[in-house]
Design a protein around this nucleic acid. Structure first.
Lengths: 230, 230
DNA sequence: CGTTCATTTGAGTGAAGTCAAACCGAGTGG
DNA sequence: CCACTCGGTTTGACTTCACTCAAATGAACG
Protein backbone atom coordinates (compact mmCIF):
# COMPACT_ATOMS: atom_id res chain seq x y z
CA UNK A 1 0.00 0.00 0.00
CA UNK A 2 0.89 3.60 -0.30
CA UNK A 3 3.34 4.23 2.49
CA UNK A 4 3.36 1.31 4.84
CA UNK A 5 3.64 2.14 8.51
CA UNK A 6 7.22 1.05 9.05
CA UNK A 7 9.94 3.49 8.15
CA UNK A 8 10.72 3.35 4.47
CA UNK A 9 14.39 2.92 3.69
CA UNK A 10 15.89 5.78 1.76
CA UNK A 11 16.23 4.41 -1.70
CA UNK A 12 19.05 5.73 -3.78
CA UNK A 13 17.89 5.69 -7.35
CA UNK A 14 14.13 5.95 -7.29
CA UNK A 15 11.18 6.80 -5.17
CA UNK A 16 9.76 3.53 -4.03
CA UNK A 17 6.46 4.21 -2.41
CA UNK A 18 5.10 0.78 -1.83
CA UNK A 19 7.22 -1.88 -0.30
CA UNK A 20 4.79 -4.63 0.61
CA UNK A 21 4.23 -7.19 -2.09
CA UNK A 22 1.64 -8.84 0.10
CA UNK A 23 -1.91 -7.49 -0.20
CA UNK A 24 -2.84 -5.64 2.97
CA UNK A 25 -6.00 -6.09 4.97
CA UNK A 26 -7.07 -2.53 4.28
CA UNK A 27 -10.33 -2.10 2.38
CA UNK A 28 -9.94 -1.47 -1.32
CA UNK A 29 -9.79 2.27 -1.79
CA UNK A 30 -8.96 4.79 -4.46
CA UNK A 31 -5.69 3.07 -5.02
CA UNK A 32 -7.33 -0.13 -6.14
CA UNK A 33 -9.76 1.50 -8.53
CA UNK A 34 -8.77 3.34 -11.68
CA UNK A 35 -8.27 2.02 -15.16
CA UNK A 36 -5.13 0.31 -16.36
CA UNK A 37 -3.31 1.96 -19.21
CA UNK A 38 -0.85 0.18 -21.44
CA UNK A 39 2.28 2.13 -22.39
CA UNK A 40 4.60 1.34 -25.28
CA UNK A 41 8.34 1.60 -24.85
CA UNK A 42 9.34 5.28 -25.23
CA UNK A 43 5.73 6.43 -25.01
CA UNK A 44 4.94 9.25 -22.60
CA UNK A 45 2.60 8.80 -19.65
CA UNK A 46 2.52 12.58 -19.32
CA UNK A 47 4.63 15.50 -20.42
CA UNK A 48 6.22 18.51 -18.82
CA UNK A 49 3.52 21.19 -18.74
CA UNK A 50 0.52 18.86 -18.95
CA UNK A 51 -2.21 19.56 -16.40
CA UNK A 52 -1.81 17.20 -13.47
CA UNK A 53 -5.11 15.35 -13.74
CA UNK A 54 -3.98 11.93 -12.62
CA UNK A 55 -1.66 10.12 -10.31
CA UNK A 56 -0.32 6.85 -11.68
CA UNK A 57 0.77 3.66 -10.02
CA UNK A 58 3.19 1.54 -11.99
CA UNK A 59 1.86 -1.98 -12.43
CA UNK A 60 4.44 -3.30 -14.87
CA UNK A 61 7.61 -2.07 -16.56
CA UNK A 62 9.64 1.02 -15.75
CA UNK A 63 8.76 4.70 -16.17
CA UNK A 64 11.48 7.32 -16.29
CA UNK A 65 10.71 10.73 -14.81
CA UNK A 66 12.87 13.33 -16.52
CA UNK A 67 13.45 16.99 -17.23
CA UNK A 68 14.38 18.07 -20.72
CA UNK A 69 16.51 21.21 -21.10
CA UNK A 70 16.17 23.54 -24.06
CA UNK A 71 19.15 22.18 -25.95
CA UNK A 72 18.30 18.50 -25.61
CA UNK A 73 20.17 17.70 -22.41
CA UNK A 74 18.05 15.51 -20.18
CA UNK A 75 18.18 14.62 -16.50
CA UNK A 76 16.31 11.58 -15.31
CA UNK A 77 14.98 12.19 -11.83
CA UNK A 78 14.03 8.62 -11.02
CA UNK A 79 13.06 5.27 -12.43
CA UNK A 80 9.61 4.27 -11.20
CA UNK A 81 9.19 0.53 -10.76
CA UNK A 82 6.01 -1.50 -10.15
CA UNK A 83 4.44 -0.35 -6.90
CA UNK A 84 5.78 3.18 -7.25
CA UNK A 85 3.59 6.23 -7.78
CA UNK A 86 4.25 9.08 -10.17
CA UNK A 87 2.48 12.39 -10.44
CA UNK A 88 2.10 13.09 -6.73
CA UNK A 89 2.57 16.66 -5.59
CA UNK A 90 0.62 19.87 -5.31
CA UNK A 91 1.37 21.70 -8.53
CA UNK A 92 -1.38 22.18 -11.10
CA UNK A 93 0.86 21.05 -13.92
CA UNK A 94 3.49 18.39 -14.28
CA UNK A 95 7.01 19.74 -14.30
CA UNK A 96 8.62 16.58 -15.66
CA UNK A 97 8.20 14.13 -18.49
CA UNK A 98 7.19 10.58 -17.64
CA UNK A 99 8.27 8.14 -20.30
CA UNK A 100 8.33 4.35 -20.40
CA UNK A 101 11.80 2.85 -20.84
CA UNK A 102 10.16 -0.40 -21.90
CA UNK A 103 6.60 -1.66 -22.37
CA UNK A 104 4.66 -0.86 -19.20
CA UNK A 105 1.28 -0.70 -17.52
CA UNK A 106 0.08 1.99 -15.16
CA UNK A 107 -3.05 2.42 -13.08
CA UNK A 108 -4.67 5.83 -13.50
CA UNK A 109 -6.08 7.56 -10.42
CA UNK A 110 -7.87 10.88 -10.35
CA UNK A 111 -5.65 13.51 -8.74
CA UNK A 112 -8.60 15.72 -7.82
CA UNK A 113 -10.51 12.91 -6.15
CA UNK A 114 -7.37 11.87 -4.32
CA UNK A 115 -6.72 15.35 -2.95
CA UNK A 116 -10.35 15.83 -2.04
CA UNK A 117 -10.49 12.60 -0.15
CA UNK A 118 -7.19 13.39 1.53
CA UNK A 119 -8.60 16.66 2.80
CA UNK A 120 -11.17 14.64 4.76
CA UNK A 121 -9.17 11.52 5.58
CA UNK A 122 -6.13 12.22 7.74
CA UNK A 123 -4.73 8.73 7.31
CA UNK A 124 -4.78 9.07 3.54
CA UNK A 125 -3.16 12.49 3.74
CA UNK A 126 -0.51 11.03 5.99
CA UNK A 127 0.14 8.23 3.52
CA UNK A 128 0.63 10.80 0.81
CA UNK A 129 3.02 12.64 3.09
CA UNK A 130 5.03 9.50 3.69
CA UNK A 131 5.05 8.59 0.03
CA UNK A 132 6.44 11.96 -0.99
CA UNK A 133 8.93 11.86 1.89
CA UNK A 134 10.31 8.64 0.49
CA UNK A 135 10.61 10.18 -2.95
CA UNK A 136 12.38 13.12 -1.39
CA UNK A 137 14.91 10.88 0.30
CA UNK A 138 15.52 9.14 -3.01
CA UNK A 139 15.98 12.38 -4.93
CA UNK A 140 18.43 13.68 -2.35
CA UNK A 141 20.37 10.46 -2.37
CA UNK A 142 20.74 10.65 -6.14
CA UNK A 143 21.77 14.27 -5.81
CA UNK A 144 24.62 13.30 -3.49
CA UNK A 145 25.75 10.69 -5.98
CA UNK A 146 25.61 12.98 -9.00
CA UNK A 147 27.13 15.92 -7.17
CA UNK A 148 30.06 14.16 -5.53
CA UNK A 149 30.84 10.75 -6.94
CA UNK A 150 32.96 9.56 -9.86
CA UNK A 151 31.50 7.72 -12.83
CA UNK A 152 32.60 4.39 -11.35
CA UNK A 153 31.04 5.17 -7.98
CA UNK A 154 27.79 6.30 -9.54
CA UNK A 155 27.44 3.29 -11.77
CA UNK A 156 28.39 0.81 -9.05
CA UNK A 157 25.89 2.41 -6.71
CA UNK A 158 23.23 2.30 -9.38
CA UNK A 159 23.74 -1.39 -10.07
CA UNK A 160 23.79 -2.14 -6.37
CA UNK A 161 20.56 -0.27 -5.78
CA UNK A 162 18.89 -2.08 -8.65
CA UNK A 163 20.00 -5.39 -7.23
CA UNK A 164 18.05 -4.75 -4.03
CA UNK A 165 15.23 -2.89 -5.69
CA UNK A 166 14.45 -4.99 -8.71
CA UNK A 167 16.17 -8.34 -8.25
CA UNK A 168 15.38 -11.10 -10.68
CA UNK A 169 13.15 -13.64 -9.02
CA UNK A 170 15.18 -16.72 -8.17
CA UNK A 171 18.62 -15.15 -8.53
CA UNK A 172 19.65 -12.25 -6.27
CA UNK A 173 22.82 -11.58 -8.22
CA UNK A 174 21.14 -11.04 -11.57
CA UNK A 175 19.90 -7.57 -12.39
CA UNK A 176 17.77 -6.83 -15.42
CA UNK A 177 18.39 -3.45 -17.06
CA UNK A 178 15.05 -2.60 -18.66
CA UNK A 179 16.34 0.69 -20.04
CA UNK A 180 18.86 1.94 -22.60
CA UNK A 181 22.35 3.11 -21.80
CA UNK A 182 21.20 6.63 -22.53
CA UNK A 183 18.62 6.38 -19.74
CA UNK A 184 21.26 5.28 -17.27
CA UNK A 185 23.56 8.05 -18.47
CA UNK A 186 20.86 10.67 -18.06
CA UNK A 187 20.03 9.42 -14.58
CA UNK A 188 23.63 9.54 -13.41
CA UNK A 189 24.60 12.76 -15.15
CA UNK A 190 27.07 11.02 -17.48
CA UNK A 191 27.28 10.32 -21.21
CA UNK A 192 26.39 7.06 -22.95
CA UNK A 193 30.05 6.50 -23.75
CA UNK A 194 31.17 6.91 -20.16
CA UNK A 195 28.47 4.52 -18.96
CA UNK A 196 29.55 1.99 -21.56
CA UNK A 197 33.24 2.34 -20.78
CA UNK A 198 32.57 2.02 -17.05
CA UNK A 199 30.51 -1.13 -17.55
CA UNK A 200 33.31 -2.53 -19.67
CA UNK A 201 35.79 -1.74 -16.92
CA UNK A 202 33.63 -3.53 -14.35
CA UNK A 203 33.49 -6.48 -16.71
CA UNK A 204 37.24 -6.65 -17.22
CA UNK A 205 37.65 -6.35 -13.45
CA UNK A 206 35.43 -9.44 -13.19
CA UNK A 207 33.07 -7.64 -10.82
CA UNK A 208 30.11 -8.12 -13.13
CA UNK A 209 29.23 -10.03 -16.24
CA UNK A 210 26.82 -8.71 -18.85
CA UNK A 211 24.56 -10.93 -20.92
CA UNK A 212 23.03 -9.55 -24.11
CA UNK A 213 23.65 -6.04 -22.80
CA UNK A 214 20.59 -6.05 -20.58
CA UNK A 215 21.31 -8.61 -17.91
CA UNK A 216 23.97 -7.86 -15.32
CA UNK A 217 25.36 -10.73 -13.27
CA UNK A 218 27.01 -9.51 -10.11
CA UNK A 219 30.07 -11.67 -9.60
CA UNK A 220 31.58 -9.82 -6.64
CA UNK A 221 29.00 -7.78 -4.76
CA UNK A 222 31.46 -6.94 -2.00
CA UNK A 223 33.86 -5.33 -4.44
CA UNK A 224 30.94 -3.60 -6.13
CA UNK A 225 29.90 -2.10 -2.81
CA UNK A 226 33.45 -0.88 -2.23
CA UNK A 227 33.52 0.71 -5.67
CA UNK A 228 30.21 2.40 -4.88
CA UNK A 229 31.96 4.19 -1.99
CA UNK A 230 31.34 1.83 0.97
CA UNK B 1 2.18 29.15 7.27
CA UNK B 2 3.22 25.70 6.42
CA UNK B 3 2.06 25.18 2.88
CA UNK B 4 -0.24 27.97 1.86
CA UNK B 5 -3.18 26.96 -0.27
CA UNK B 6 -1.97 28.28 -3.58
CA UNK B 7 0.44 26.16 -5.56
CA UNK B 8 3.99 26.63 -4.37
CA UNK B 9 6.42 27.46 -7.11
CA UNK B 10 9.16 24.92 -7.60
CA UNK B 11 12.17 26.52 -6.04
CA UNK B 12 15.48 25.62 -7.47
CA UNK B 13 17.93 25.78 -4.65
CA UNK B 14 16.05 25.11 -1.46
CA UNK B 15 12.82 23.86 -0.09
CA UNK B 16 10.82 26.87 0.78
CA UNK B 17 7.85 25.79 2.76
CA UNK B 18 6.36 29.05 3.79
CA UNK B 19 5.88 31.78 1.27
CA UNK B 20 3.68 34.30 3.04
CA UNK B 21 5.57 36.97 4.91
CA UNK B 22 2.28 38.30 6.24
CA UNK B 23 0.94 36.66 9.40
CA UNK B 24 -2.10 34.58 8.49
CA UNK B 25 -5.43 34.64 10.26
CA UNK B 26 -5.08 30.99 11.23
CA UNK B 27 -5.16 30.24 14.94
CA UNK B 28 -1.79 29.74 16.56
CA UNK B 29 -1.03 26.03 16.49
CA UNK B 30 1.92 23.72 16.99
CA UNK B 31 3.92 25.80 14.59
CA UNK B 32 3.71 28.84 16.78
CA UNK B 33 4.66 27.07 19.98
CA UNK B 34 8.05 25.54 20.59
CA UNK B 35 11.18 27.09 22.01
CA UNK B 36 13.59 29.20 20.05
CA UNK B 37 17.14 27.93 19.83
CA UNK B 38 20.10 30.09 18.95
CA UNK B 39 22.69 28.54 16.61
CA UNK B 40 26.25 29.77 16.13
CA UNK B 41 27.78 29.88 12.68
CA UNK B 42 28.99 26.35 11.78
CA UNK B 43 27.13 24.82 14.72
CA UNK B 44 24.97 21.79 14.00
CA UNK B 45 21.21 21.80 14.53
CA UNK B 46 21.30 18.04 14.20
CA UNK B 47 23.62 15.41 12.77
CA UNK B 48 23.36 12.51 10.40
CA UNK B 49 22.21 9.57 12.50
CA UNK B 50 20.64 11.55 15.34
CA UNK B 51 17.16 10.42 16.36
CA UNK B 52 14.60 12.63 14.69
CA UNK B 53 12.97 14.10 17.77
CA UNK B 54 12.21 17.56 16.45
CA UNK B 55 11.20 19.47 13.39
CA UNK B 56 12.69 22.94 13.13
CA UNK B 57 11.46 26.11 11.55
CA UNK B 58 14.14 28.60 10.59
CA UNK B 59 13.50 31.97 12.18
CA UNK B 60 16.74 33.71 11.29
CA UNK B 61 19.88 32.93 9.33
CA UNK B 62 20.54 30.03 6.99
CA UNK B 63 20.86 26.32 7.73
CA UNK B 64 22.62 24.01 5.27
CA UNK B 65 21.33 20.45 5.00
CA UNK B 66 24.15 18.22 3.86
CA UNK B 67 25.45 14.70 3.47
CA UNK B 68 29.04 13.94 4.38
CA UNK B 69 30.77 11.09 2.56
CA UNK B 70 33.40 8.93 4.20
CA UNK B 71 36.37 10.71 2.67
CA UNK B 72 35.25 14.23 3.47
CA UNK B 73 33.35 15.05 0.31
CA UNK B 74 30.14 16.85 1.12
CA UNK B 75 26.96 17.52 -0.81
CA UNK B 76 24.66 20.25 0.39
CA UNK B 77 21.07 19.30 -0.28
CA UNK B 78 19.50 22.67 0.37
CA UNK B 79 19.86 25.99 2.12
CA UNK B 80 16.97 26.53 4.51
CA UNK B 81 15.96 30.16 4.87
CA UNK B 82 13.65 31.79 7.43
CA UNK B 83 10.18 30.29 7.06
CA UNK B 84 11.53 26.95 5.84
CA UNK B 85 11.25 23.74 7.82
CA UNK B 86 13.93 21.13 8.28
CA UNK B 87 13.63 17.67 9.74
CA UNK B 88 10.33 16.71 8.15
CA UNK B 89 9.93 13.15 6.94
CA UNK B 90 9.09 9.74 8.26
CA UNK B 91 12.41 8.22 9.15
CA UNK B 92 13.31 7.61 12.78
CA UNK B 93 16.74 9.12 12.36
CA UNK B 94 18.08 12.06 10.45
CA UNK B 95 19.99 11.09 7.34
CA UNK B 96 21.64 14.49 6.86
CA UNK B 97 23.60 17.04 8.81
CA UNK B 98 21.97 20.40 9.47
CA UNK B 99 24.54 23.09 10.04
CA UNK B 100 24.24 26.87 10.27
CA UNK B 101 26.19 28.76 7.61
CA UNK B 102 25.92 31.87 9.77
CA UNK B 103 24.41 32.76 13.13
CA UNK B 104 20.81 31.57 13.13
CA UNK B 105 17.70 30.96 15.19
CA UNK B 106 15.36 28.01 14.85
CA UNK B 107 12.06 27.12 16.45
CA UNK B 108 11.96 23.60 17.85
CA UNK B 109 8.80 21.55 17.38
CA UNK B 110 8.20 18.05 18.68
CA UNK B 111 8.21 15.60 15.79
CA UNK B 112 6.18 13.03 17.70
CA UNK B 113 3.49 15.54 18.68
CA UNK B 114 3.39 16.79 15.12
CA UNK B 115 2.89 13.34 13.64
CA UNK B 116 0.33 12.44 16.25
CA UNK B 117 -1.69 15.53 15.61
CA UNK B 118 -1.38 15.00 11.87
CA UNK B 119 -2.85 11.53 12.22
CA UNK B 120 -6.03 13.16 13.56
CA UNK B 121 -6.05 16.41 11.64
CA UNK B 122 -6.28 15.93 7.87
CA UNK B 123 -5.57 19.55 7.10
CA UNK B 124 -2.32 19.42 9.06
CA UNK B 125 -1.34 16.19 7.34
CA UNK B 126 -2.08 17.78 4.01
CA UNK B 127 0.04 20.78 4.89
CA UNK B 128 2.90 18.44 5.70
CA UNK B 129 2.32 16.73 2.37
CA UNK B 130 2.49 20.01 0.52
CA UNK B 131 5.55 21.12 2.42
CA UNK B 132 7.47 17.98 1.54
CA UNK B 133 6.24 18.15 -2.04
CA UNK B 134 7.78 21.60 -2.32
CA UNK B 135 11.06 20.28 -0.91
CA UNK B 136 10.92 17.46 -3.42
CA UNK B 137 10.49 19.86 -6.31
CA UNK B 138 13.45 21.86 -5.04
CA UNK B 139 15.68 18.79 -4.67
CA UNK B 140 14.83 17.60 -8.16
CA UNK B 141 15.47 21.00 -9.62
CA UNK B 142 18.91 21.09 -8.03
CA UNK B 143 19.55 17.58 -9.31
CA UNK B 144 18.87 18.71 -12.88
CA UNK B 145 21.27 21.58 -12.41
CA UNK B 146 24.06 19.49 -10.91
CA UNK B 147 23.57 16.62 -13.32
CA UNK B 148 23.43 18.58 -16.57
CA UNK B 149 24.67 22.12 -16.29
CA UNK B 150 28.09 23.73 -16.56
CA UNK B 151 29.69 25.60 -13.68
CA UNK B 152 28.60 28.92 -15.16
CA UNK B 153 25.02 27.77 -15.61
CA UNK B 154 24.85 26.38 -12.09
CA UNK B 155 26.25 29.48 -10.45
CA UNK B 156 24.12 31.87 -12.51
CA UNK B 157 21.04 29.85 -11.65
CA UNK B 158 21.99 29.83 -8.01
CA UNK B 159 22.42 33.61 -7.86
CA UNK B 160 19.19 34.10 -9.74
CA UNK B 161 17.28 31.84 -7.38
CA UNK B 162 18.70 33.65 -4.37
CA UNK B 163 17.65 36.98 -5.85
CA UNK B 164 14.00 35.88 -5.85
CA UNK B 165 14.24 33.86 -2.68
CA UNK B 166 16.22 36.07 -0.35
CA UNK B 167 16.27 39.54 -1.86
CA UNK B 168 17.64 42.35 0.25
CA UNK B 169 14.80 44.48 1.46
CA UNK B 170 14.76 47.73 -0.52
CA UNK B 171 16.96 46.57 -3.40
CA UNK B 172 15.87 43.66 -5.57
CA UNK B 173 19.20 43.47 -7.36
CA UNK B 174 21.31 42.97 -4.24
CA UNK B 175 21.79 39.44 -2.98
CA UNK B 176 23.41 38.65 0.33
CA UNK B 177 25.52 35.49 0.42
CA UNK B 178 25.33 34.38 4.05
CA UNK B 179 27.54 31.35 3.43
CA UNK B 180 31.13 30.56 2.50
CA UNK B 181 32.33 29.74 -1.00
CA UNK B 182 32.77 26.16 0.17
CA UNK B 183 29.06 25.95 0.97
CA UNK B 184 28.12 27.18 -2.48
CA UNK B 185 30.62 24.75 -4.02
CA UNK B 186 29.19 21.82 -2.07
CA UNK B 187 25.65 22.76 -3.06
CA UNK B 188 26.47 22.96 -6.76
CA UNK B 189 28.82 19.99 -6.90
CA UNK B 190 31.84 22.13 -7.71
CA UNK B 191 35.07 23.10 -5.95
CA UNK B 192 35.76 26.34 -4.11
CA UNK B 193 38.21 27.37 -6.81
CA UNK B 194 35.73 26.85 -9.62
CA UNK B 195 33.08 28.85 -7.77
CA UNK B 196 35.56 31.65 -7.20
CA UNK B 197 36.77 31.67 -10.80
CA UNK B 198 33.21 31.66 -12.11
CA UNK B 199 32.25 34.58 -9.87
CA UNK B 200 35.31 36.43 -11.12
CA UNK B 201 34.29 35.74 -14.70
CA UNK B 202 30.80 37.10 -14.03
CA UNK B 203 32.43 40.17 -12.54
CA UNK B 204 34.71 40.80 -15.50
CA UNK B 205 31.68 40.29 -17.77
CA UNK B 206 30.01 43.10 -15.82
CA UNK B 207 27.02 40.89 -15.10
CA UNK B 208 27.45 41.18 -11.36
CA UNK B 209 29.47 43.17 -8.88
CA UNK B 210 30.65 41.78 -5.58
CA UNK B 211 31.05 43.85 -2.42
CA UNK B 212 33.19 42.53 0.41
CA UNK B 213 32.77 39.03 -1.02
CA UNK B 214 29.34 38.56 0.49
CA UNK B 215 27.10 40.99 -1.33
CA UNK B 216 26.29 40.40 -4.98
CA UNK B 217 24.88 43.25 -7.04
CA UNK B 218 23.16 42.01 -10.15
CA UNK B 219 24.00 44.48 -12.90
CA UNK B 220 22.42 42.61 -15.82
CA UNK B 221 19.77 40.17 -14.68
CA UNK B 222 18.73 39.42 -18.25
CA UNK B 223 22.21 38.28 -19.16
CA UNK B 224 22.39 36.34 -15.91
CA UNK B 225 19.19 34.51 -16.81
CA UNK B 226 20.62 33.64 -20.22
CA UNK B 227 23.79 32.32 -18.63
CA UNK B 228 21.64 30.22 -16.31
CA UNK B 229 20.24 28.48 -19.38
CA UNK B 230 17.12 30.55 -20.22
C1' DC C 1 50.62 44.48 13.45
C1' DG C 2 50.53 39.80 13.28
C1' DT C 3 47.54 35.80 13.19
C1' DT C 4 43.92 33.37 11.23
C1' DC C 5 40.62 32.14 8.05
C1' DA C 6 38.57 32.77 3.57
C1' DT C 7 39.09 33.93 -1.11
C1' DT C 8 41.44 34.61 -5.33
C1' DT C 9 44.74 33.53 -8.82
C1' DG C 10 48.06 30.58 -11.33
C1' DA C 11 49.99 26.43 -13.48
C1' DG C 12 49.46 21.85 -14.69
C1' DT C 13 46.64 17.41 -14.72
C1' DG C 14 43.07 14.32 -15.42
C1' DA C 15 38.36 12.43 -15.69
C1' DA C 16 34.83 12.67 -18.47
C1' DG C 17 33.12 14.80 -22.74
C1' DT C 18 33.02 15.02 -28.01
C1' DC C 19 33.32 13.25 -32.47
C1' DA C 20 33.70 9.39 -35.29
C1' DA C 21 33.89 4.74 -36.63
C1' DA C 22 33.18 -0.13 -35.86
C1' DC C 23 30.35 -3.61 -33.97
C1' DC C 24 26.28 -6.32 -32.72
C1' DG C 25 21.68 -8.34 -32.44
C1' DA C 26 17.06 -8.30 -34.00
C1' DG C 27 13.98 -7.82 -37.61
C1' DT C 28 12.64 -7.85 -42.47
C1' DG C 29 12.25 -9.06 -46.91
C1' DG C 30 14.37 -10.81 -51.20
C1' DC D 1 18.65 -18.72 -45.48
C1' DC D 2 21.24 -14.85 -46.23
C1' DA D 3 21.74 -9.88 -47.05
C1' DC D 4 20.39 -5.60 -45.53
C1' DT D 5 18.84 -2.27 -42.45
C1' DC D 6 18.35 -0.11 -38.13
C1' DG D 7 18.80 1.09 -33.36
C1' DG D 8 21.69 0.53 -29.82
C1' DT D 9 26.29 -0.28 -27.92
C1' DT D 10 31.18 -0.39 -27.80
C1' DT D 11 35.69 1.28 -28.79
C1' DG D 12 39.18 4.72 -30.23
C1' DA D 13 41.42 9.25 -30.66
C1' DC D 14 41.40 13.66 -29.13
C1' DT D 15 39.72 17.81 -26.43
C1' DT D 16 38.14 20.36 -22.62
C1' DC D 17 36.19 21.76 -18.42
C1' DA D 18 36.73 21.44 -13.98
C1' DC D 19 39.94 19.55 -10.44
C1' DT D 20 44.37 19.60 -7.80
C1' DC D 21 48.14 21.60 -5.76
C1' DA D 22 50.33 25.73 -4.50
C1' DA D 23 51.04 30.40 -3.60
C1' DA D 24 49.40 35.20 -3.12
C1' DT D 25 45.99 38.28 -1.53
C1' DG D 26 42.52 40.12 1.43
C1' DA D 27 39.47 40.80 5.47
C1' DA D 28 38.57 40.38 10.41
C1' DC D 29 40.07 40.54 15.01
C1' DG D 30 42.64 40.58 19.16
Amino acid sequence: MLGSSQAIEANVYGGRVSSSAVPTSEPADRFERGTIRRIEAKEHVFCDGDPRTHVFRIEEGVIALSKLLGDGRRQIIEFAYPGDYIGLGTLREHIFDAQATCAAKVRCLSAAALEQEASRDASLALRLYKAVSAELAAARSLLVSVGQQSAMERLSGFLLSLSTRAPSESDETVVKLPMRRSDIADLLGLTIETVSRTITKLRTMRVIDVVRGTEVHILDSERLAELAGQ
